[in-house]
């Protein structure tokens, strides 16, 4: 872990959905290259937390700095931050009216202003990386869930982001497809990109996470190295949660 200034810094971040206080006094700093897994019961604010990083959700109090830019209402700076942050969603969210290749070249061409031929070349590299290059000219809905999610990962990598956010990337997948996605994520983790991953795949957390964060009721309850987190959960809520998800 480097000691330079953090690439993401939450400072007393708060957010409400109407009256519901979803994020409460979040303090969190993520170092460059760090791999973090966020877990916790549903409704605890995990997804909201990472969605604040690329401002899909807007925090209402506190400061949030990503790659040196403080997130405010300024549209230009938001778009600049989003260029550095890739995101993978639970529901894949591929664009169904575009082919796999077009899904991948869209942002590089329009956001990165890269010529089409070059964008396609880069897209094919990313598709090779997630081992799905042969599907480049198909439409997303012609692929299996696992394949779609790998395409989604490749798409978010095309702009060479510094940070990758994963929002329960395997939760919508059939069991036999989970591993093909996790394999890709492990490879990615080993290549030094900063990663924050909301997931309940504890095997994945054990093998790649530098740090595991446990959230409940909008707060960060406990955080520790993966080994310590699983071996010695300190907080009783963490113990309770782990006993439930590791029961079988």
């Amino acid at each position: 872990m480097s000691t330079s200034s953090p690439i993401i810094e939450f400072s007393k971040v708060n957010k409400w959905y109407g009256e519901f206080h979803v994020l409460r006094d979040i303090d969190l700093s993520v170092a460059k290259g760090e791999r973090i897994v966020v877990c916790g019961p549903s409704g605890s604010g995990k997804s909201t937390l990472i969605r604040c990083v690329n401002r899909l959700e807007v925090h209402q109090a506190g400061t949030l700095t990503v790659d040196g830019t403080e997130l405010t209402d300024d549209v230009k700076s938001i778009e600049a931050v989003r260029r550095q942050v890739g995101m993978v969603f639970q529901q894949f969210n591929l664009f169904p009216h575009l082919t796999v290749l077009e899904n991948l070249t869209l942002a590089p061409m329009w956001v990165g202003k890269i010529p089409k031929a070059e964008a396609e070349e880069r897209a094919m590299q990313q598709l090779n990386r997630v081992r799905i290059a042969e599907q480049a000219n198909k439409y997303p809905l012609q692929l299996s869930g696992g394949q779609q999610q790998r395409v989604a990962i490749a798409r978010s990598l095309c702009l060479t982001p510094k940070i990758m956010l994963f929002d329960e990337p395997t939760s919508a997948l059939d069991p036999e497809m989970i591993n093909e996605v996790l394999d890709v994520m492990v490879e990615l983790a080993n290549q030094g990109i900063t990663m924050i991953c909301v997931t309940h795949e504890m095997g994945f957390a054990r093998s790649v996470a530098d740090r595991v964060i446990f959230m409940d009721q909008g707060q960060i309850v406990e955080q520790n190295t993966a080994t310590e987190f699983f071996a010695n959960p300190k907080n009783e809520r963490t113990q309770d949660f782990l006993s439930k998800i590791l029961a079988h």
């Binding site: 778009e79 989003r82 942002a107």
Partner: peptide
Amino acid sequence: LPKGQVEAAHSLGLSYWQ
């Protein structure tokens, strides 16, 4: 249109009109 479509597009840094 599912909300995720716009979110995915936002996360790629595309502008409103794009």
